[in-house]
Simulated assay, not measured.
Amino acid sequence: MLEPNQNPLRLLHIDSSARPGQSGRDPRGSHTRRLSARFVERWAARRPSDIVTYRDVGQFPPTPVDAAWVEAAFTRPEKRDAIQRARLGESDHLVAELVAADVVVVGAPMYNFGMPAPLKAWLDNIVRVGVTFGFDRARDGDPYWPMLPTGKTLVTLSARGDYGYDPGGRQAHNNFVESGLAAPLAYIGLHDRHAIAIEYDEFGDQRLAASIAAAEQAVDALVEQLVRQHTAPVLA
């Protein structure tokens, strides 16, 4: 007989909207917070023993990368002084959260065709030479290689004021949210990715309502798919 292996998985739940509430519940609430909360709630219902780490970069933005960060990051660990180690402390913590996660769920609204600045700051803090990617100029072929543990899944939950940003759509060439996350995360080793989005927010009519309903159904279906994918059967 086969039964699911219920060893706890770790979810990293990131919200980045400037809006603190959730649409459908709070005035002017965020669609992406609504979708990410739904994903995590549905996941917890299916796998209640899993561990969720929540990070709200929209309300508590990471410190942007600056010259001191770059100098510290590109100094060999054994040669860093106390100031450099302290400057990388936040980055170290963010990287540790990502390394520990099996599923990374990111609420990423579209702002001016791209992701919010705090989410970009998070990305810049976790893409680190010698930590999440390797570099050797003397290496044959590609001098870069990913260093993240394998087996992770990225789920991007977005929202757009306009419509037609999915592949093949009228605005697909202007969508820098999903690709802006997927490219750097694939670069460090996270290749399994899924994306769902709400559109028509600026229209506020039945098309928006239909898009919300479709996105919520897609979230529910994706949870079921990923739970099956990440729950390996074992002999009882």
Rank of each mutant, 00 (worst) to 15 (best):
T156A: 13
R170E: 14
P64G: 07
N174F: 10
D201R: 12
V52D: 02
R80V: 02
K120D: 14
D142N: 15
T132C: 09
G24W: 06
P143W: 07
D201M: 15
E97D: 15
P118G: 03
D92V: 04
L11G: 10
D124P: 15
S211C: 06
H173I: 14
P48M: 05
L154W: 04
R228P: 13
I196G: 02
P27N: 08
Q229H: 09
R160T: 07
D166I: 03
P8C: 01
V70A: 15
L123W: 05
R87W: 03
A72E: 11
S49W: 12
V223R: 00
A172T: 07
L35S: 01
V65E: 06
G130R: 09
D81R: 07
P109F: 04
G168C: 01
N125K: 12
S179R: 13
V219N: 02
T53A: 10
Y163K: 05
E178N: 15
T32G: 09
Y187A: 05
Q229T: 13
L226S: 05
T150D: 12
L190R: 00
S30N: 03
A218Y: 07
D26E: 07
H230I: 12
S91V: 02
S36Y: 04
A210K: 11
V57W: 03
P64D: 03
D140S: 13
L35E: 01
V95M: 06
V103E: 03
S211T: 05
A138W: 05
D50W: 02
D136Y: 12
F60E: 08
G89R: 05
Q59A: 15
A100Y: 00
A209P: 15
L9K: 09
I14G: 14
V99L: 04
D166F: 03
R139M: 08
Y144A: 07
S30I: 01
P149N: 00
L88A: 01
S211E: 04
M147V: 07
T63G: 06
D192G: 06
